[in-house]
Design a protein around this nucleic acid. Structure first.
Length: 590
RNA sequence: GCGGGCAUAGUGAAGUGGUAUCACUAUGGCCUUCCAAGCCAUCAGCCCGGGUUCGAAUCCCGGUGCCCGCACCA
């Protein structure tokens, strides 16, 4: 059982307090992990970085919606019907199959209605489908929905689900958000949150979780404006590693060309791919181990019409999706508008309101009222819906109300031409969705940051593994380790005041005076602390180094001596630089 | 869900029916003037349940979890 990088990373993560398997004292549960103190800090730092990218830089607004969600939402979104796999098991050997795949494989022409289990049972009988494995008889088809169900309120008042994605909350709030953004497109909204998927067999550790953290952005835009991005010009020259669906081959192309050649469907998708690349690199992923793979038509989610996954290369799992950038078109808003009967449209304003003259069928309600009593309102509405061109003037007209045909006499309506001012035309915005899997990104960051050397002890000659996490300073849970060189003669006291000053300045630190300084460096290297500060006798003395400390860089082990008064500012400057990979690990001047 | 393997301290390992060992880590102390030094002490463990036996970490049965395949994976 050669320990691969996953094992090694996980071992450090567990031992040092990044990650713990959840519910461990009760035997654990696959697909759930706890974030320990360092993991929670790392997660918070990644979230903060996401805010920096999407809220500060892109101007998105952050909202936060519940995880527990009424069933109607997921009926409208398609998840109840489609976030499910129709399963059928062999009654003999127990082998499980996708029922619809079996039926299609048996020569059935046409669409299998995956929502109708009895229809599928019938089809299985008709086509004499047996177990592919042992030839045994198949049991009944059942739905394996991957959402966690629950009830809202005591008893079974109202069915609900834990959300499988945070996006729906944003879509549902669209009318509010549209007003918040003063009825102007495009705008973006982000949400951090947990999502839940009751995976059948989550056996890939941090990669496939049943409860996981997402950072999702929904960018609403007007499709008539070509799905562009105001800053697209800044990224046209960027070259990203792309794996288009047409070839399946990795190519490196300028984004401007990729859009021009139709490889990437629109500017907005391409822009967010570039942004995502920068984000992943800032979190500490190895730029050489990132690529963008386009979904094949067959693997696209039910709501998407184009989707590029950012994938990272894992030593154990191969290429793993960690961000999905999808063009969801108008799918979600249209679905919710239809299901809720709310208006989810936006208005494309004309420069000047237009005078439009329109011919309409105008109901004369004072005639319809006495004539149709309770149904008068419905009749009036039905009349107004009619196309004036189909109505013969001065004649009775028949309308259909609740399946009943009613004849309206000529005096019940009037055909007239009205002049209206139209401010614009309404349309359903399209959505570009960059959706980030936080847990996977965090794991990727750890795996790509992990480094070990075999150190040979000079005295004993024994080999020892030296582990180091080269996390970017920006995301490292602890920024500075603070040590007295040795534990005596006032060094610890002085070091503690340095530690305290740094923390008061908003810099997370770890004070350590145990063992030798080398051991303390090792401990901090292992959790990715970028800087360690040591207080020595020169600090206390009256010489030229009075009130100066040494700062040691994790990756180069180089040291620099700084006045203690400048320390907090120096560290903060290094942390601010951490937006790009090249600058996150600055060498310290010797 | 199916088949196979595994389960001993925080970590890694030893332990073929008779007092559970060892290393590392951690904690306290001594020592220590910059990269896992040394010394002393301390904490902490047989996955769960049942069976066989005078006696089970060890043998048997069942369960759970993890790993590897198959299947599944918007």
């Amino acid at each position: 059982m050669a320990a691969d990088v996953y094992d090694k990373v996980f071992q450090v993560a567990k031992r040092r307090g990044f990650l713990y398997p959840s519910f461990e004292i009760y035997g654990g549960a696959a697909g759930f992990y706890d974030y320990g103190p360092l993991g929670a800090a790392l997660k918070a730092n990644i979230e903060e970085l996401f805010r920096e990218f999407y809220v500060t830089r892109e101007g998105c607004a952050e909202i936060s919606c519940p995880s527990v969600t009424p069933e109607e939402v997921f009926i409208a979104s398609g998840h109840v019907a489609q976030f499910t796999d129709p399963m059928v098991k062999c009654s003999q050997c127990g082998e499980g199959f996708r029922a619809d795949h079996l039926i299609e494989g048996a020569g059935f022409e046409g669409n299998v209605d995956v929502s109708d289990t009895t229809a599928m049972d019938t089809l299985i009988l008709e086509h004499k489908v047996n177990c592919l494995h042992c030839g045994g008889r198949l049991a009944e088809v059942y739905h394996q929905n991957l959402m966690f169900g629950t009830e809202i309120g005591p008893g079974t008042r109202r069915k609900g689900y834990l959300r499988p994605e945070t996006a729906q909350g944003i879509f549902i709030d669209f009318p509010h958000l549209y007003r918040y953004f003063r009825e102007k497109l495009p705008f973006g909204v982000i949400q951090f949150g947990r999502g839940y998927r009751n995976e059948i067999s989550p056996r890939q550790g941090m990669i496939r979780l049943r409860e996981f953290n997402m950072m999702e952005a929904e960018i609403f835009l007007d499709p008539a404006e070509g799905k562009g991005h105001p800053d697209f010009a800044e990224v046209t020259g960027r070259v990203l590693p792309l794996v288009p669906k047409t070839t399946g081959e990795r190519t490196e192309v300028r984004l401007g060309d990729a859009v021009k050649d139709g490889v990437v469907r629109n500017e907005a998708l391409a822009y967010y791919m570039a942004l995502t690349y920068d984000f992943l690199v800032s979190v500490g992923l190895d730029p050489e181990k990132i690529r963008f793979r386009q979904h094949l038509d067959t693997e696209m989610a039910h709501y998407a019409n184009d989707c590029w996954d950012a994938e990272f290369l894992s030593a154990r799992f191969g290429w793993v999706e960690c961000v999905g950038i999808a063009d969801r078109s108008a799918y979600d808003l249209t679905s919710h508008a239809k299901a809720s009967k709310e208006n989810m449209d936006a208005l494309r304003r004309y420069d000047e309101p237009k005078e439009v003259s329109r011919t309409i069928v105008f109901p004369i309600t004072k005639v319809l009222g006495p004539l149709f009593k309770g149904k008068a309102k419905a009749v009036a509405d039905a009349l107004a819906e009619l196309d004036p061109g189909t109505v013969t003037p001065e004649a009775a007209v028949t309308v259909s109300v609740d399946g009943e045909h009613l004849e309206v006499p000529p005096e019940g309506y009037e055909i007239k031409t009205v002049n209206e001012k139209v401010a614009g035309e309404s349309f359903t915005p399209h959505v570009i969705e960059p959706s980030y899997g936080l847990d996977r990104i965090l794991y990727a960051g750890l795996e790509h940051a992990y480094e070990e050397d075999e150190a040979v002890d000079e005295e004993s000659g024994e080999k020892e593994v030296y582990r180091r996490l080269r996390l970017p300073a920006r995301v490292a849970p602890i920024k500075v380790g603070v040590f007295p060189l040795i534990s005596k003669e006032g060094l610890p006291e002085y070091a503690q005041t340095v530690d305290r000053r740094l923390r008061r300045a908003g810099i997370p630190t770890f004070y350590d005076d145990s063992g030798t300084v080398g051991r303390r460096y090792a401990r901090q290297d292992e959790i990715g602390t970028p800087f360690c500060v040591t207080i020595d006798f020169d600090t206390l003395g009256d010489g030229e180094h009075k009130d100066t400390v040494t700062v040691r860089d994790r990756d180069t082990r180089r040291q620099v001596r700084l006045p203690v008064n400048e320390l907090a500012g120096w560290v903060r400057a290094k942390l601010r630089l951490a937006g790009k990979h090249e600058t996150v690990m600055p060498a310290i001047d010797a």
